[in-house]
Simulated scan of single mutants.
Amino acid sequence: MTRHIYALRIELSDVTPPVWRRVLVPAGYTLDRVHRVIQYAVGWQDCHLHSFDIDGVTYGAPDPDGLLDAADELDHRLDAVAGKDTRFGYTYDFGDWWEHEITVEDVVAADPAQRYPVCVDGAGQCPPEDIGGASGYAEFVAAVADPAHPRHAELREWVGDHEPPSFDPSRVTTLLRRLT
């Protein structure tokens, strides 16, 4: 039986400079594993709630308080809810409301010599956690770039050096190996 791999493009919405990743993941991954791939690939710390929105259905971790009406992501495989050219949403941190657009760019046969998941391309540095979403990040970028900005020193002290390094897919792949 041929194992299939999904080529996913993950793009963080409404941020400049753009933050995106292209990852190859097994088609049989459950959505909770796709969530963990996104966390490692983009650079989040997985300390907030999240959800997927695929064809009008919300998927996420079971909510013991019943506030999030979502299908259990542990029960749904990627290949059962999405196919080639499917676009769907992933929201991380319901306070900052980081929206990501995920596109299934291709579905291919797995290379038996390759370990998956793997990151093959991308750009941009992930915003810091708890920065206030896209609008807070825009203010953050302006403040850390301008020593005269009233919040420059405060934000530099809080986050340290946030200069965008060149993106390295092999570093992300190393992190993704923790999933296998």
Score class of each variant (00 low, 15 high):
L179T: 11
T30W: 00
G83D: 13
V19H: 02
G132Y: 11
E105S: 08
H50N: 00
V118S: 03
H162G: 12
P117C: 07
Y116S: 01
L74E: 03
L49A: 03
W98D: 05
E101I: 05
H162M: 13
I102L: 12
R151M: 08
L12D: 06
L68S: 02
Q45F: 00
S13T: 07
A153F: 08
L24Q: 14
G133K: 02
I5E: 03
A153Y: 09
S166E: 15
F88G: 01
V108H: 14
T16A: 02
A27R: 00
L175D: 13
L78P: 13
D69N: 03
E129A: 01
V107A: 05
D63I: 02
A109P: 11
P18S: 01
Y40S: 04
P26V: 11
D106P: 00
F88H: 08
L155I: 03
A148W: 07
A109Y: 03
I38A: 06
E157F: 14
R77L: 06
C126A: 07
P165R: 14
L31I: 11
A110M: 14
F140A: 10
Y6G: 04
D75N: 06
G43R: 02
D168I: 08
S170W: 09
A41T: 08
V57F: 04
T58H: 00
T91Y: 00
W97H: 12
D32Q: 10
P164Y: 04
Q114R: 15
L175Q: 10
E11H: 06
L8Y: 06
A70T: 11
S170E: 15
D55R: 14
D130A: 10
I102P: 05
G56C: 07
P128V: 12
E73V: 05
A148S: 15
F94H: 11
D130H: 05
A143D: 11
D85R: 14
R22C: 00
P64W: 13
E163P: 00
E11V: 07
P150T: 08
S170N: 12
P17R: 06
V23Q: 07
Q45D: 13
R9L: 10
V19I: 05
H4S: 11
G43V: 06
E99K: 05
A123G: 06
D161N: 10
A148D: 12
D63T: 03
R115V: 15
E129C: 07
L31E: 02
D46I: 08
L78Y: 13
